[in-house]
Simulated scan of single mutants.
Amino acid sequence: MSITLVAVVLALVLGHVAPALVASFRQYGWYTAWLHWLGESGGDAWRGRYGIALALAPIVLLVALLQWMLDGPVYGLVGLLFDIAVLVYAWGPRDLDVDVEAIIDAHDAPTRRAAIARLGLTGETAALDGPALVEAVFANALQRWFGVLFWFLLLGPVGAILYRLAARSASAPDLPEQNSRGARALKTALDWPVAQLMTLAMALVGNFDTVFSTWREAGGARFRPDTGFLAQVARASVRGELAEEAEEYAEEGMVQAMRELPELRDAMSLVWRILLLWLAVLAVFVIGGWVS
């Protein structure tokens, strides 16, 4: 777990200090070429619902072998460096907070639309749709940060690379129909426990009653592979926090300064608080391990 803390901090710091270097490191053209080759020679097995396993299994097994082999040499230092490298590679591939800041700092409509498109939103009304921006921030937080972090914590480098490649497979445009459905189902299955833990953390760092009631109404309490509840909980939580902030200003007799894109700012603030809570819990486990 101490490795996870170090690796996450490095991933965040490097994304801000050396974004060009990190961007050049996080290249997945080799995986796209691998999918293309399988599409040409994979046959009926590739076109089936579980065909994506043909793409993922060799890579995951290779990473598992390296993880096992590098764990011992030089008192585990080589393994530590490998773990950090894999997590930094799987993180992102773009830093969410940088993309959100680019939206907030954009001073004209075309620049803002281009920045919003990096979150997966397109269209003329996207820049004015606060709830859609909140959903996009949390969907990207799940895929860029928390999904990788959770599976790295659970399985090590194998989990991080599995999640990242599964996410890329789920959005790959050229997969056969059944294969693509299987890839999306795998991605949803990997996302579900992460979304549940993000919701729990949101309840702890935000309004617990609002989060809990929305989570139940959105079907989060049902054991099924669906993460739609996260978007609804995020919207309700942000809406509640903005309402509470406005009420506090009114009670103090102050006029609230109108910020641009308040939902976007509050959503990113909430994501940061969730990440800090996750890291704080990890730190407690690390300290507990040292003490014992």
Score class of each variant (00 low, 15 high):
145 W>C: 06
199 T>G: 03
179 N>D: 10
91 W>D: 01
83 D>S: 09
237 S>E: 09
218 A>I: 05
176 P>T: 10
27 Q>I: 15
176 P>C: 07
262 P>Y: 03
28 Y>C: 11
204 L>F: 14
242 L>H: 08
178 Q>M: 15
74 V>F: 02
256 Q>L: 15
226 D>M: 03
102 A>C: 13
24 S>N: 11
105 D>I: 09
258 M>I: 13
215 W>E: 01
93 P>M: 05
244 E>A: 11
70 L>C: 14
26 R>A: 14
192 W>E: 00
46 W>Y: 02
289 G>H: 00
11 A>F: 00
258 M>H: 14
223 F>K: 09
211 V>S: 10
16 H>I: 12
199 T>F: 00
80 L>S: 13
125 T>Y: 10
250 A>D: 00
204 L>T: 15
141 A>Q: 11
210 T>H: 09
286 V>H: 04
52 I>P: 08
205 V>W: 11
64 A>D: 06
133 L>H: 12
88 V>H: 03
222 R>E: 05
131 P>M: 07
208 F>T: 06
121 L>T: 12
207 N>T: 04
85 A>M: 07
32 T>W: 12
29 G>F: 14
27 Q>E: 13
236 A>L: 09
268 M>A: 13
280 A>M: 01
100 V>I: 08
58 P>S: 03
3 I>E: 01
235 R>I: 11
114 A>K: 15
174 D>G: 11
233 V>K: 01
222 R>C: 06
244 E>C: 08
45 A>F: 07
178 Q>L: 14
226 D>A: 03
81 L>H: 13
201 A>I: 01
283 A>H: 01
73 P>D: 05
261 L>S: 05
268 M>I: 13
131 P>Y: 09
280 A>T: 01
282 L>E: 04
165 L>E: 00
283 A>V: 05
284 V>P: 00
208 F>N: 03
69 M>R: 15
21 L>Q: 13
82 F>P: 04
35 L>S: 06
115 A>M: 10
262 P>W: 03
117 A>E: 08
49 R>F: 01
142 L>I: 08
254 M>K: 07
191 D>T: 02
18 A>S: 15
230 L>R: 02
251 E>K: 02
289 G>E: 09
159 G>N: 05
187 K>I: 02
168 R>G: 09
44 D>S: 14
14 L>N: 12
107 H>Q: 15
182 G>K: 10
245 E>T: 12
123 G>H: 10
92 G>F: 09
104 I>T: 08
116 I>M: 08
106 A>Y: 01
279 L>A: 03
276 L>M: 09
60 V>C: 00
129 D>Q: 04
79 G>P: 14
95 D>A: 04
108 D>N: 15
130 G>D: 07
127 A>N: 04
86 V>I: 08
103 I>Q: 12
236 A>P: 06
264 L>Q: 13
262 P>G: 02
114 A>D: 11
168 R>E: 13
225 P>S: 01
159 G>A: 01
